[in-house]
Nucleic acid binder design. Structure first.
Length: 217
DNA sequence: ACAAGGATCCTCT
DNA sequence: GAGGATCCTTGTT
């Protein structure tokens, strides 16, 4: 079984969202017996990013983005998918968050499969809606404290050997300049990621020498 | 009240 | 790769 570790401290989330996003790759999400290792994330922040849900200001739906760091921002996408974000605030932004896009199973595979239609392999967890389903998230988790023991928590895990970066997925509504930001971070050695080909960038090959640099716009 | 638009997923081809 | 499913949130009459 997975060793129980204290959740990541609140201070982890009070930094630049790009640094937090990168370091969340490899961390563990725990809810009950289900433990997932994060393999793919995306960073969002406002101002300066028209892909961010905060772009139209504070609303009832996105209020958690302006709340305490280390809490979850969970919202319903396309009317049926529960998407898990982690609230971050690093001083450079009024509101920021990291979207968990994919994971690989660490524990609780039976439960995961049951919640995902008894499928098998990466299709279980390679997509933000799939992660939400595997964790059985619902609206009640919006604003949940991920630093507190119990419920849903974020813990240290196994860091990736190499991290690949690329543009974020599914944000065609944003300004082209913002669509191009390499704010998507994936474990380069994991098969449990969505859109592997779409993230193809020099960083994938150069990761051997240098994980990445220059991810500030 | 109403219309439009999604940070997606699944099932085809 | 393309298209439909599906329904809540938001902004506009």
């Amino acid at each position: 079984m997975t060793k129980l570790r204290p959740p990541l401290p609140r201070s982890f989330y009070s930094r630049c969202v790009l640094a937090v996003a990168e370091e969340l790759v490899g961390c563990h999400l725990r809810r009950g017996r289900v433990v997932l290792r994060i393999t793919e994330v995306e960073a969002y922040r406002w101002p300066g990013d028209t892909a961010c849900h905060a772009r139209h200001g504070r609303t009832a739906r996105n209020a958690a983005l302006w709340g305490a760091v280390g809490h979850a921002y969970v919202y319903l996408c396309y009317g049926l998918h529960q998407m898990l974000n982690v609230v971050v605030r690093g001083g450079e932004a009024d509101a920021a968050a990291v979207l968990v896009r994919a994971c690989e199973p660490v524990a609780g595979l039976t439960t995961i499969r049951r919640r995902r239609g008894n499928k098998q392999g990466p299709v279980l967890l390679t997509g933000p809606g799939k992660v939400g389903a595997a964790l059985a998230l619902d609206r009640a988790f919006d604003g949940h404290d991920l630093c507190a023991t119990g419920g849903l928590t974020l813990e240290p895990g196994t860091p990736p050997k190499q991290v690949a970066v690329g543009p974020r997925i599914g944000i065609d509504y944003a300004e082209p300049e913002h669509c191009a930001y390499p704010w998507r971070f994936v474990d380069a050695d994991s098969a449990w990621v969505s859109h592997r080909a779409a993230s193809a960038r020099p960083a994938m090959h150069e990761a051997h020498h240098e994980a990445h640099e220059d991810h500030e716009p």
